[in-house]
Design a protein around this nucleic acid. Structure first.
Length: 433
DNA sequence: AAATCTCGCAACCGCAACATC
DNA sequence: GGATGTTGCGGTTGCGAGATT
Protein backbone atom coordinates (compact mmCIF):
# COMPACT_ATOMS: atom_id res chain seq x y z
CA UNK A 1 0.00 0.00 0.00
CA UNK A 2 1.12 3.48 -0.58
CA UNK A 3 0.60 4.53 2.97
CA UNK A 4 2.38 3.10 5.87
CA UNK A 5 0.72 0.38 7.88
CA UNK A 6 -1.19 1.60 10.84
CA UNK A 7 -2.52 5.09 11.18
CA UNK A 8 -2.17 8.38 9.41
CA UNK A 9 -1.48 11.79 10.86
CA UNK A 10 -5.10 12.32 11.80
CA UNK A 11 -5.27 9.03 13.64
CA UNK A 12 -7.40 7.36 11.00
CA UNK A 13 -6.59 3.84 9.99
CA UNK A 14 -4.67 3.41 6.75
CA UNK A 15 -4.22 -0.24 6.04
CA UNK A 16 -6.07 -3.10 4.38
CA UNK A 17 -9.68 -3.41 5.35
CA UNK A 18 -10.50 -6.21 7.75
CA UNK A 19 -13.57 -8.44 7.35
CA UNK A 20 -15.00 -6.80 10.46
CA UNK A 21 -14.70 -3.34 8.95
CA UNK A 22 -16.24 -4.60 5.73
CA UNK A 23 -19.20 -5.96 7.65
CA UNK A 24 -19.71 -2.64 9.41
CA UNK A 25 -19.70 -0.78 6.14
CA UNK A 26 -22.00 -3.27 4.43
CA UNK A 27 -24.41 -3.13 7.32
CA UNK A 28 -24.46 0.63 7.20
CA UNK A 29 -25.00 0.73 3.45
CA UNK A 30 -27.83 -1.79 3.67
CA UNK A 31 -29.60 0.32 6.24
CA UNK A 32 -29.07 3.75 4.77
CA UNK A 33 -28.20 3.31 1.11
CA UNK A 34 -25.54 5.32 -0.68
CA UNK A 35 -24.87 8.50 1.29
CA UNK A 36 -24.95 12.01 -0.06
CA UNK A 37 -21.95 12.84 2.09
CA UNK A 38 -19.34 10.15 2.48
CA UNK A 39 -17.56 12.14 5.13
CA UNK A 40 -20.43 11.32 7.49
CA UNK A 41 -20.19 7.59 6.91
CA UNK A 42 -17.20 6.71 9.12
CA UNK A 43 -18.77 8.48 12.06
CA UNK A 44 -22.19 6.89 11.61
CA UNK A 45 -20.83 3.45 10.76
CA UNK A 46 -18.29 3.64 13.60
CA UNK A 47 -15.34 3.13 11.34
CA UNK A 48 -11.94 4.60 12.03
CA UNK A 49 -11.51 5.51 8.37
CA UNK A 50 -11.83 8.59 6.27
CA UNK A 51 -14.88 9.04 4.08
CA UNK A 52 -12.85 8.71 0.96
CA UNK A 53 -11.54 5.34 2.02
CA UNK A 54 -15.08 4.15 2.77
CA UNK A 55 -16.34 5.30 -0.58
CA UNK A 56 -13.54 3.54 -2.38
CA UNK A 57 -13.96 0.33 -0.42
CA UNK A 58 -17.67 0.27 -1.15
CA UNK A 59 -17.64 1.28 -4.79
CA UNK A 60 -14.72 -0.91 -5.79
CA UNK A 61 -15.12 -4.04 -3.70
CA UNK A 62 -18.20 -4.35 -1.54
CA UNK A 63 -20.98 -3.03 -3.72
CA UNK A 64 -23.29 -5.80 -4.96
CA UNK A 65 -22.83 -6.81 -8.57
CA UNK A 66 -19.11 -6.33 -8.74
CA UNK A 67 -17.50 -9.11 -10.69
CA UNK A 68 -14.17 -10.46 -9.50
CA UNK A 69 -11.81 -12.98 -10.99
CA UNK A 70 -10.09 -13.51 -14.30
CA UNK A 71 -10.94 -11.42 -17.31
CA UNK A 72 -12.42 -13.30 -20.24
CA UNK A 73 -10.97 -13.05 -23.73
CA UNK A 74 -13.90 -10.87 -24.73
CA UNK A 75 -13.30 -8.53 -21.84
CA UNK A 76 -9.62 -8.39 -22.65
CA UNK A 77 -10.31 -7.55 -26.27
CA UNK A 78 -12.74 -4.87 -25.23
CA UNK A 79 -10.24 -3.26 -22.90
CA UNK A 80 -7.53 -3.26 -25.55
CA UNK A 81 -9.85 -1.77 -28.12
CA UNK A 82 -11.27 0.89 -25.85
CA UNK A 83 -7.93 1.80 -24.33
CA UNK A 84 -6.53 2.22 -27.77
CA UNK A 85 -9.42 4.38 -28.84
CA UNK A 86 -10.00 6.39 -25.68
CA UNK A 87 -6.76 6.26 -23.75
CA UNK A 88 -6.71 5.64 -20.02
CA UNK A 89 -10.30 6.62 -19.45
CA UNK A 90 -10.89 3.77 -17.05
CA UNK A 91 -14.23 4.97 -15.81
CA UNK A 92 -15.60 5.05 -19.32
CA UNK A 93 -14.07 1.70 -20.19
CA UNK A 94 -15.62 0.22 -17.06
CA UNK A 95 -19.05 1.28 -18.25
CA UNK A 96 -18.58 -1.06 -21.22
CA UNK A 97 -17.71 -4.02 -18.99
CA UNK A 98 -20.63 -4.73 -16.67
CA UNK A 99 -19.53 -5.72 -13.20
CA UNK A 100 -15.95 -4.55 -13.60
CA UNK A 101 -14.67 -1.48 -11.85
CA UNK A 102 -12.42 1.16 -13.27
CA UNK A 103 -9.78 0.34 -10.71
CA UNK A 104 -9.73 -3.35 -11.55
CA UNK A 105 -9.47 -2.64 -15.24
CA UNK A 106 -6.72 -0.13 -14.65
CA UNK A 107 -4.78 -2.66 -12.61
CA UNK A 108 -5.29 -5.36 -15.18
CA UNK A 109 -4.07 -3.05 -17.88
CA UNK A 110 -1.02 -1.91 -15.99
CA UNK A 111 0.04 -5.31 -14.76
CA UNK A 112 -0.91 -7.57 -17.60
CA UNK A 113 -2.31 -6.22 -20.84
CA UNK A 114 0.29 -3.55 -21.39
CA UNK A 115 3.04 -6.11 -21.18
CA UNK A 116 1.22 -8.50 -23.46
CA UNK A 117 0.89 -5.83 -26.09
CA UNK A 118 4.51 -4.81 -25.68
CA UNK A 119 5.58 -8.38 -26.37
CA UNK A 120 3.67 -8.33 -29.63
CA UNK A 121 5.65 -5.22 -30.50
CA UNK A 122 2.62 -3.34 -31.63
CA UNK A 123 3.63 0.26 -32.02
CA UNK A 124 1.30 2.40 -29.97
CA UNK A 125 -1.18 4.06 -32.22
CA UNK A 126 -1.27 6.97 -29.84
CA UNK A 127 2.07 8.07 -31.22
CA UNK A 128 0.78 8.73 -34.66
CA UNK A 129 0.02 12.31 -35.53
CA UNK A 130 -3.48 11.54 -36.72
CA UNK A 131 -4.50 9.65 -33.64
CA UNK A 132 -5.32 12.41 -31.21
CA UNK A 133 -7.08 14.68 -33.70
CA UNK A 134 -9.26 11.81 -34.80
CA UNK A 135 -10.16 10.94 -31.28
CA UNK A 136 -10.80 14.52 -30.36
CA UNK A 137 -13.19 14.70 -33.25
CA UNK A 138 -14.82 11.43 -32.22
CA UNK A 139 -15.31 12.54 -28.64
CA UNK A 140 -16.92 15.74 -29.73
CA UNK A 141 -19.20 14.09 -32.24
CA UNK A 142 -20.32 11.64 -29.59
CA UNK A 143 -21.07 14.42 -27.19
CA UNK A 144 -23.11 16.15 -29.88
CA UNK A 145 -24.99 12.93 -30.53
CA UNK A 146 -25.72 12.53 -26.86
CA UNK A 147 -26.87 16.10 -26.65
CA UNK A 148 -29.26 15.62 -29.47
CA UNK A 149 -30.60 12.31 -28.21
CA UNK A 150 -30.99 13.64 -24.76
CA UNK A 151 -32.93 16.67 -25.83
CA UNK A 152 -34.88 14.93 -28.54
CA UNK A 153 -36.14 12.39 -26.08
CA UNK A 154 -37.21 15.12 -23.72
CA UNK A 155 -39.25 16.89 -26.32
CA UNK A 156 -42.88 17.24 -25.58
CA UNK A 157 -45.26 16.31 -28.31
CA UNK A 158 -46.35 19.89 -28.57
CA UNK A 159 -42.85 21.29 -28.93
CA UNK A 160 -42.71 23.77 -31.75
CA UNK A 161 -40.08 25.56 -33.72
CA UNK A 162 -39.95 29.23 -32.93
CA UNK A 163 -40.31 30.34 -36.48
CA UNK A 164 -39.06 27.94 -39.12
CA UNK A 165 -40.41 29.95 -42.00
CA UNK A 166 -38.56 33.04 -41.04
CA UNK A 167 -35.37 31.58 -39.71
CA UNK A 168 -34.95 28.60 -41.94
CA UNK A 169 -32.73 26.55 -39.72
CA UNK A 170 -33.73 25.20 -36.40
CA UNK A 171 -30.86 24.42 -34.15
CA UNK A 172 -30.37 22.58 -30.97
CA UNK A 173 -28.96 24.47 -28.09
CA UNK A 174 -28.77 24.19 -24.39
CA UNK A 175 -29.63 26.84 -21.94
CA UNK A 176 -27.71 26.37 -18.71
CA UNK A 177 -30.23 28.39 -16.79
CA UNK A 178 -33.14 26.17 -17.65
CA UNK A 179 -35.87 25.87 -20.23
CA UNK A 180 -37.54 28.23 -22.58
CA UNK A 181 -40.69 29.52 -21.04
CA UNK A 182 -42.89 28.01 -23.69
CA UNK A 183 -41.03 24.75 -24.19
CA UNK A 184 -40.23 21.61 -22.33
CA UNK A 185 -37.68 21.64 -19.56
CA UNK A 186 -34.08 21.84 -20.56
CA UNK A 187 -34.72 22.19 -24.24
CA UNK A 188 -34.25 24.97 -26.72
CA UNK A 189 -34.94 24.72 -30.38
CA UNK A 190 -33.87 28.01 -31.66
CA UNK A 191 -33.10 29.70 -34.91
CA UNK A 192 -29.41 29.61 -35.56
CA UNK A 193 -29.35 32.55 -37.90
CA UNK A 194 -30.91 34.68 -35.29
CA UNK A 195 -29.56 33.58 -31.96
CA UNK A 196 -31.25 36.43 -30.23
CA UNK A 197 -34.72 35.13 -30.97
CA UNK A 198 -34.98 33.80 -27.48
CA UNK A 199 -31.60 33.63 -25.89
CA UNK A 200 -28.05 34.17 -26.97
CA UNK A 201 -26.80 31.15 -28.83
CA UNK A 202 -25.32 28.65 -26.42
CA UNK A 203 -24.09 26.33 -29.06
CA UNK A 204 -21.61 28.71 -30.57
CA UNK A 205 -19.24 28.69 -27.59
CA UNK A 206 -19.35 24.92 -27.55
CA UNK A 207 -18.27 24.70 -31.15
CA UNK A 208 -15.61 27.30 -30.59
CA UNK A 209 -14.23 25.31 -27.71
CA UNK A 210 -14.12 22.21 -29.82
CA UNK A 211 -12.45 23.89 -32.73
CA UNK A 212 -9.69 25.00 -30.45
CA UNK A 213 -8.95 21.46 -29.39
CA UNK A 214 -7.97 19.96 -32.70
CA UNK A 215 -5.22 20.97 -35.06
CA UNK A 216 -7.15 20.45 -38.26
CA UNK A 217 -8.32 23.81 -39.52
CA UNK A 218 -9.88 22.24 -42.55
CA UNK A 219 -11.83 19.85 -40.45
CA UNK A 220 -12.93 22.71 -38.32
CA UNK A 221 -14.32 24.63 -41.22
CA UNK A 222 -16.01 21.64 -42.68
CA UNK A 223 -17.40 20.69 -39.36
CA UNK A 224 -18.96 24.05 -38.74
CA UNK A 225 -20.42 24.11 -42.20
CA UNK A 226 -21.52 20.59 -41.85
CA UNK A 227 -23.49 20.95 -38.68
CA UNK A 228 -25.34 23.86 -40.10
CA UNK A 229 -26.20 22.12 -43.31
CA UNK A 230 -27.01 18.90 -41.58
CA UNK A 231 -29.61 20.43 -39.39
CA UNK A 232 -30.70 22.77 -42.12
CA UNK A 233 -31.81 19.79 -44.14
CA UNK A 234 -34.48 18.96 -41.66
CA UNK A 235 -37.92 19.71 -42.97
CA UNK A 236 -39.48 20.97 -39.77
CA UNK A 237 -42.96 21.58 -41.05
CA UNK A 238 -43.79 17.98 -41.77
CA UNK A 239 -42.49 16.20 -38.74
CA UNK A 240 -42.29 16.48 -35.06
CA UNK A 241 -38.80 17.47 -34.04
CA UNK A 242 -37.90 14.09 -32.67
CA UNK A 243 -37.97 12.38 -36.04
CA UNK A 244 -35.21 14.29 -37.72
CA UNK A 245 -33.19 14.68 -34.57
CA UNK A 246 -32.54 11.04 -33.90
CA UNK A 247 -31.08 10.26 -37.31
CA UNK A 248 -28.85 13.26 -36.85
CA UNK A 249 -27.68 11.82 -33.58
CA UNK A 250 -27.17 8.50 -35.32
CA UNK A 251 -25.10 10.10 -37.94
CA UNK A 252 -22.90 11.83 -35.42
CA UNK A 253 -22.45 8.68 -33.39
CA UNK A 254 -21.63 6.57 -36.42
CA UNK A 255 -19.07 9.10 -37.52
CA UNK A 256 -17.53 9.03 -34.08
CA UNK A 257 -17.48 5.25 -34.15
CA UNK A 258 -15.85 5.37 -37.52
CA UNK A 259 -13.10 7.63 -36.31
CA UNK A 260 -12.57 5.53 -33.23
CA UNK A 261 -12.33 2.37 -35.24
CA UNK A 262 -9.66 3.73 -37.51
CA UNK A 263 -7.53 5.76 -35.19
CA UNK A 264 -6.18 2.73 -33.32
CA UNK A 265 -5.21 1.11 -36.60
CA UNK A 266 -2.72 3.79 -37.34
CA UNK A 267 0.86 2.81 -36.94
CA UNK A 268 3.84 4.99 -36.50
CA UNK A 269 5.56 3.53 -39.53
CA UNK A 270 2.63 4.06 -41.84
CA UNK A 271 3.45 5.83 -45.04
CA UNK A 272 1.30 8.31 -46.81
CA UNK A 273 1.02 8.03 -50.55
CA UNK A 274 0.47 11.70 -50.90
CA UNK A 275 1.60 13.82 -48.07
CA UNK A 276 0.72 17.02 -49.81
CA UNK A 277 -2.87 16.05 -50.13
CA UNK A 278 -3.32 16.51 -46.44
CA UNK A 279 -2.34 20.15 -46.47
CA UNK A 280 -1.71 19.86 -42.82
CA UNK A 281 1.52 20.83 -41.09
CA UNK A 282 0.78 18.66 -38.09
CA UNK A 283 0.53 15.54 -40.17
CA UNK A 284 3.44 16.45 -42.37
CA UNK A 285 5.63 17.16 -39.42
CA UNK A 286 4.58 13.95 -37.74
CA UNK A 287 5.51 11.80 -40.69
CA UNK A 288 8.92 13.33 -40.93
CA UNK A 289 11.14 12.53 -43.84
CA UNK A 290 8.78 10.57 -45.99
CA UNK A 291 9.16 11.86 -49.48
CA UNK A 292 5.84 12.53 -51.12
CA UNK A 293 5.23 10.65 -54.30
CA UNK A 294 4.84 13.28 -57.02
CA UNK A 295 2.75 10.81 -58.96
CA UNK A 296 0.40 10.63 -56.04
CA UNK A 297 -0.54 14.23 -56.46
CA UNK A 298 -2.89 12.99 -59.08
CA UNK A 299 -4.77 10.88 -56.64
CA UNK A 300 -5.92 13.66 -54.43
CA UNK A 301 -7.23 11.95 -51.39
CA UNK A 302 -5.34 9.74 -49.08
CA UNK A 303 -7.59 7.54 -47.06
CA UNK A 304 -6.98 5.35 -44.11
CA UNK A 305 -7.79 1.75 -44.69
CA UNK A 306 -6.97 -1.60 -43.28
CA UNK A 307 -6.05 -4.69 -45.13
CA UNK A 308 -7.56 -7.73 -43.53
CA UNK A 309 -4.93 -9.98 -44.99
CA UNK A 310 -2.04 -7.92 -43.74
CA UNK A 311 -0.14 -4.96 -45.00
CA UNK A 312 0.36 -3.58 -48.41
CA UNK A 313 3.91 -4.09 -49.64
CA UNK A 314 6.16 -1.50 -48.18
CA UNK A 315 3.77 -0.36 -45.53
CA UNK A 316 3.33 -1.00 -41.87
CA UNK A 317 1.52 -4.09 -40.65
CA UNK A 318 -2.20 -3.83 -40.77
CA UNK A 319 -2.25 -0.42 -42.24
CA UNK A 320 -2.83 1.02 -45.66
CA UNK A 321 -2.92 4.60 -46.54
CA UNK A 322 -4.06 4.58 -50.06
CA UNK A 323 -5.64 6.89 -52.50
CA UNK A 324 -9.32 6.46 -52.28
CA UNK A 325 -10.30 7.74 -55.66
CA UNK A 326 -7.88 5.45 -57.33
CA UNK A 327 -7.68 2.15 -55.54
CA UNK A 328 -5.23 0.83 -58.05
CA UNK A 329 -2.50 3.19 -56.99
CA UNK A 330 -0.71 0.28 -55.45
CA UNK A 331 -2.23 -2.29 -57.74
CA UNK A 332 -4.48 -3.42 -54.97
CA UNK A 333 -8.23 -3.30 -54.87
CA UNK A 334 -9.67 -0.94 -52.35
CA UNK A 335 -9.59 -2.53 -48.94
CA UNK A 336 -11.89 -0.01 -47.50
CA UNK A 337 -15.06 -1.52 -48.86
CA UNK A 338 -14.16 -4.93 -47.50
CA UNK A 339 -13.66 -3.54 -44.08
CA UNK A 340 -16.94 -1.74 -44.09
CA UNK A 341 -18.85 -4.84 -45.06
CA UNK A 342 -17.45 -6.56 -42.01
CA UNK A 343 -19.18 -4.12 -39.71
CA UNK A 344 -22.07 -5.96 -38.11
CA UNK A 345 -25.63 -4.95 -38.87
CA UNK A 346 -24.63 -2.53 -41.53
CA UNK A 347 -27.62 -1.58 -43.52
CA UNK A 348 -29.39 0.60 -41.03
CA UNK A 349 -28.34 3.67 -42.79
CA UNK A 350 -28.71 7.35 -42.70
CA UNK A 351 -32.06 8.21 -44.27
CA UNK A 352 -31.30 11.57 -45.77
CA UNK A 353 -29.20 11.56 -48.95
CA UNK A 354 -28.07 15.07 -48.22
CA UNK A 355 -26.80 13.94 -44.90
CA UNK A 356 -24.95 11.18 -46.63
CA UNK A 357 -23.31 13.57 -48.98
CA UNK A 358 -22.33 15.82 -46.18
CA UNK A 359 -20.98 12.89 -44.31
CA UNK A 360 -18.80 11.76 -47.15
CA UNK A 361 -17.59 15.26 -47.73
CA UNK A 362 -16.73 15.54 -44.11
CA UNK A 363 -14.71 12.38 -44.21
CA UNK A 364 -12.98 13.72 -47.23
CA UNK A 365 -12.10 16.79 -45.31
CA UNK A 366 -10.72 14.70 -42.53
CA UNK A 367 -8.48 12.64 -44.68
CA UNK A 368 -7.45 15.00 -47.35
CA UNK A 369 -9.92 17.77 -47.84
CA UNK A 370 -10.71 17.25 -51.45
CA UNK A 371 -14.09 17.70 -52.99
CA UNK A 372 -16.31 15.04 -54.42
CA UNK A 373 -15.77 12.42 -51.85
CA UNK A 374 -19.47 11.77 -52.09
CA UNK A 375 -19.12 8.66 -54.20
CA UNK A 376 -16.68 6.91 -51.97
CA UNK A 377 -17.67 3.96 -49.85
CA UNK A 378 -17.29 6.17 -46.85
CA UNK A 379 -20.97 6.75 -47.28
CA UNK A 380 -21.59 3.33 -45.95
CA UNK A 381 -20.14 3.55 -42.54
CA UNK A 382 -22.58 2.76 -39.86
CA UNK A 383 -22.00 1.07 -36.57
CA UNK A 384 -25.45 0.34 -35.38
CA UNK A 385 -24.36 -1.64 -32.40
CA UNK A 386 -23.52 1.58 -30.61
CA UNK A 387 -26.95 3.02 -31.05
CA UNK A 388 -29.43 0.31 -30.39
CA UNK A 389 -31.44 2.53 -28.11
CA UNK A 390 -31.74 5.19 -30.72
CA UNK A 391 -32.74 2.70 -33.35
CA UNK A 392 -35.43 1.40 -31.13
CA UNK A 393 -36.90 4.83 -30.62
CA UNK A 394 -36.43 5.68 -34.24
CA UNK A 395 -38.20 2.56 -35.39
CA UNK A 396 -41.11 3.38 -33.21
CA UNK A 397 -41.33 6.91 -34.51
CA UNK A 398 -40.56 6.53 -38.19
CA UNK A 399 -42.80 4.62 -40.55
CA UNK A 400 -40.92 2.07 -42.66
CA UNK A 401 -40.08 3.15 -46.17
CA UNK A 402 -40.18 0.99 -49.26
CA UNK A 403 -37.71 3.09 -51.14
CA UNK A 404 -34.20 1.84 -51.55
CA UNK A 405 -31.65 4.30 -50.31
CA UNK A 406 -28.58 5.27 -52.29
CA UNK A 407 -26.56 3.53 -49.67
CA UNK A 408 -28.42 0.29 -50.07
CA UNK A 409 -28.07 0.60 -53.81
CA UNK A 410 -24.36 0.96 -53.40
CA UNK A 411 -24.26 -2.02 -51.13
CA UNK A 412 -26.12 -4.19 -53.62
CA UNK A 413 -23.74 -3.13 -56.31
CA UNK A 414 -20.83 -3.90 -54.12
CA UNK A 415 -22.10 -7.30 -53.18
CA UNK A 416 -22.84 -8.24 -56.77
CA UNK A 417 -19.31 -7.23 -57.65
CA UNK A 418 -18.08 -9.43 -54.84
CA UNK A 419 -20.16 -12.35 -56.07
CA UNK A 420 -18.72 -12.83 -59.50
CA UNK A 421 -18.20 -9.67 -61.40
CA UNK A 422 -14.69 -8.45 -61.62
CA UNK A 423 -13.41 -6.49 -58.72
CA UNK A 424 -12.08 -3.95 -61.20
CA UNK A 425 -15.57 -2.89 -62.09
CA UNK A 426 -16.43 -2.50 -58.47
CA UNK A 427 -13.36 -0.53 -57.76
CA UNK A 428 -13.95 1.61 -60.77
CA UNK A 429 -17.46 2.43 -59.73
CA UNK A 430 -16.42 3.30 -56.29
CA UNK A 431 -13.41 5.20 -57.36
CA UNK A 432 -15.06 7.46 -59.84
CA UNK A 433 -15.63 10.89 -58.50
C1' DA B 1 15.62 -24.23 3.02
C1' DA B 2 16.61 -19.57 2.57
C1' DA B 3 17.11 -15.55 -0.12
C1' DT B 4 15.70 -13.00 -3.88
C1' DC B 5 12.77 -11.74 -7.55
C1' DT B 6 8.37 -10.99 -9.91
C1' DC B 7 3.82 -9.90 -10.17
C1' DG B 8 -0.95 -8.78 -8.94
C1' DC B 9 -3.77 -6.40 -6.05
C1' DA B 10 -5.57 -3.12 -2.80
C1' DA B 11 -5.15 1.12 -0.98
C1' DC B 12 -3.61 5.74 -0.91
C1' DC B 13 -2.11 10.18 -3.15
C1' DG B 14 -2.67 14.32 -5.67
C1' DC B 15 -5.18 17.00 -8.56
C1' DA B 16 -9.17 19.00 -10.77
C1' DA B 17 -13.94 19.81 -10.88
C1' DC B 18 -17.89 20.67 -8.53
C1' DA B 19 -20.82 22.03 -4.56
C1' DT B 20 -21.74 24.63 -0.62
C1' DC B 21 -21.19 28.26 2.56
C1' DG C 1 -16.75 36.18 -5.82
C1' DG C 2 -13.80 33.76 -2.80
C1' DA C 3 -12.93 30.15 0.62
C1' DT C 4 -13.68 25.74 2.03
C1' DG C 5 -15.32 21.12 1.67
C1' DT C 6 -16.42 17.04 -1.12
C1' DT C 7 -16.20 13.98 -4.87
C1' DG C 8 -14.27 11.65 -8.83
C1' DC C 9 -10.54 10.15 -11.42
C1' DG C 10 -6.01 8.50 -12.90
C1' DG C 11 -1.49 7.52 -11.16
C1' DT C 12 1.51 5.43 -7.88
C1' DT C 13 3.13 2.56 -4.26
C1' DG C 14 3.96 -1.17 -1.03
C1' DC C 15 2.41 -5.60 0.69
C1' DG C 16 2.23 -10.35 0.19
C1' DA C 17 2.04 -14.64 -2.35
C1' DG C 18 4.18 -17.47 -5.52
C1' DA C 19 8.14 -18.42 -8.54
C1' DT C 20 12.89 -18.71 -9.17
C1' DT C 21 17.63 -19.06 -7.91
Amino acid sequence: MAASQGHGRNGLKKSPWTPKEDQKLIRYMKRHGEPTRWTEVPKLARLNRCGKSCRLRWSQYLKPGIKRGNFSQDEEDTIIRLQSAHGNRWVFIATQLPGRTDSEIKNYWNTSLKKKLAKKEIPPATQTPLFQPLLAAAVFLDSCANYIRDYALRLHSDARLPNPQRHGVGFISTDPTGAFPAQGPGFNYQAMEDPTVYYPDQFGPLITNFLNTIPFPQLNQNYAGHVGSLLGNIPPATQTPIQPLLPVADWLASTAAYLRSYAPGLHSNAQLPNLHSLHNPVVQQGFGDITPDPEAQLHGVGSISTDAAGALPGQGPGFNYQAMENPTVYNHPDQFGHLITSIPNMGVLIPDPKVNNNYAADLGSLFGNVPNAGSTPALMVSESSERSMTNQVENEMTPPTEEISPLEAWLEEFLSAENGETSDSFCGDVALV
